[in-house]
Design a protein around this nucleic acid. Structure first.
Lengths: 187, 187
DNA sequence: GTCTATAATTAGATAGAC
DNA sequence: GTCTATCTAATTATAGAC
């Protein structure tokens, strides 16, 4: 079973995917290494030949999940609507770690917080690129562009995080719609 | 020491205050009952004559902390600026549970999620009252007023939560400023 | 009402066989 | 590289003395 050099990387990717889903759904502390490894089709003992610690798994999970999500290219309007949707809020897979782990991350070590912060920076750059595509020729200053991107990012990440915390589907749905409207007005 | 009928309530309030600070700072799972009780000046065994479970403590902590914060009356502009400040982000006390526990809450039981959701509803009503005080005579529809309040709430809660997650003080500070500007423009 | 002592469970991490 | 077995430490919750 361990003959091919690809095998180790396959196992690693399975672990990262399983961790991405479980951490987003249940939070870092409530998910054990045992649970992650079983979801990845292995047992506890195999974990430490892939990662040094549970904390390292966390930081790499944030980066890997975000990369997977950023790979989907589309306009700002399309991105916002699918990001701020009930489908994303209720999804078992493909949840954005910036929103689903936002308050969880603040309590962790430097490794994890750096991963989240750098992922956020990438998110801002992505939004800036999309906003510049929408408005063809632009006279706005650099700081104004950055400020608008920060506002859009907060509305997206914050809106999804609030919708996820709310125990009321109707309220969550109208809140998400209000966030989409806010971004389109501010465009 | 347990002669006065006020004594039990005093102990309870000390537990709720200690839990409010510790949960916001470190998250629910990373704080033990032992730690909470020591911060409140008691030992582990006394906990269960005040609360039935750790989860019940969590839900009551959210309500109690939010009530304490909502007691401060001021204009929307003042409220936003102190809410979206580095002082609030870095505070050891008086952190808003809506922001500091936002992704933590989504994973908990009904008791906790109901407490957060009802606190959020109170927050929306508070914002609506303040927004109506600012604009004297208003022709806006009810749904438009609610939508604006939801957007303001997401910008406040989301902005503070993102600033707290960021491992970069400068970026956090300019992000908070962008959120304040967004709310003032949308007013 | 608060204490000390303890029960019962679970976690992250390591050791060594294959 | 993955397995089983185990170490050590921490947790929530309970029992019973004062």
């Amino acid at each position: 079973m361990s003959w091919h050099p690809e095998h180790k990387n396959d196992s690693r990717q399975r672990i990262l995917r399983a961790a991405g889903e479980l951490f987003s759904k249940q939070g870092f502390d409530q998910v054990g290494i045992n649970e992650v490894m079983q979801a990845a089709g292995m047992t506890r003992g195999a974990f430490y030949s892939h990662f040094n610690s549970k904390s390292q798994l966390y930081s790499e999970t944030i980066r890997a999940t975000a990369q997977r999500l950023a790979a989907q290219e589309s306009s700002l309007e399309q991105t916002c609507q699918s990001y701020l949707s009930m489908a994303h809020r209720n999804s078992e897979q493909f949840q954005c770690p910036l929103a689903f782990l936002i308050s969880d991350v603040a309590q962790r070590d430097e490794l994890v917080r750096n991963a989240w912060t750098e992922t956020f920076r990438g998110f801002i750059q992505l939004i800036q690129r999309k906003q510049q595509n929408d408005t063809s020729s632009e006279t706005a200053t650099n700081t104004a562009v950055t400020q608008k991107a920060l506002q859009t990012a907060v509305m997206m990440i914050g809106g999804l995080a609030v919708a996820r915390a709310l125990n009321d589907d109707e309220l969550a749905e109208s809140l998400l719609a209000s966030c989409v409207a806010s971004i389109q007005t501010n465009k």
